[in-house]
Design a protein around this nucleic acid. Structure first.
Lengths: 120, 120
DNA sequence: TCTCTAGATAGACATATGTCAACATAGACG
DNA sequence: CGTCTATGTTGACATATGTCTATCTAGAGA
């Protein structure tokens, strides 16, 4: 249940895309994160959770925001969970999800172009 | 040929995921960018182009880096092109691609968690 | 013009993905 | 225990995606 994936390799953390070519394994790792975010529903889920009061939201809150069935929302939450972007915790009847900001931050860091992009 | 997509809506530029919930149209727009990056080959292409001397690379350079056929590389470059992440320019025999750093920067900005994520 | 090469396009095909209905599980509460 | 409600799981199905082969187009140069 506390399945923590490798997210992004540690040595990928500070080497933006433009600094040097990604290795094949690095690109595979990274693409898993992007795949997890490559869906409108999952992006909104992520955003709903992250922006929710207390930094967490229960599934019931999330389901109401979409014209989708419960199983579909469950499926998307699972994808986000397995990518390491969120974690869920059951408290009583409800399950609460929260975002892992470090993972978002790391992704963001990979994207930001270094000044090596256009060396004049 | 100079097909410029809307990328991300202008008013999305400074509102990270965690600040407020994405609207449905915003999430659809954003997901297109993430979809474009949600493939190991495309990530490496992007990285190869961005990190290449002069900030541009011709397709011949790129094709050699993979165990894939030319058409497949062409396909991935097209996806990246249509997402607005890169542009290609023919000069003589070869076609040179370069990255749009603004788009990467904008994506990065959306991801970076505001301090509203965990309001303590 | 003919031909060679770089790159793109078209179409086929296998696999991956998003969605749902049906069923299963986990607590809460009689 | 029995039942109600919140989530999750399974399996089916349609659509999307990645890859290939075959074919096409654009310039270069003889």
């Amino acid at each position: 249940m506390s399945k923590q994936l490798p997210l992004v390799e540690t040595d990928t953390c500070c080497s933006p895309l433009a600094r040097e070519p990604l290795t094949e394994p690095q690109s595979v790792e990274l693409s898993k994160l992007f795949k997890a975010m490559a869906d409108p529903v999952r992006l909104r889920l992520l955003s709903l959770i992250a922006s929710h009061t207390g930094g967490e939201a229960c599934v019931c809150d999330l389901t109401d925001a979409f014209d989708l069935t419960g199983p579909t929302i469950s499926h998307h939450l699972k994808v986000l969970r397995e990518s390491g972007l969120i974690t869920g915790e059951r408290r009583g009847t409800w399950v609460y999800y929260r975002v892992h900001p470090e993972v978002l931050a790391r992704l963001s860091a990979v994207l930001v172009p270094g000044d090596a992009v256009v060396p004049a």
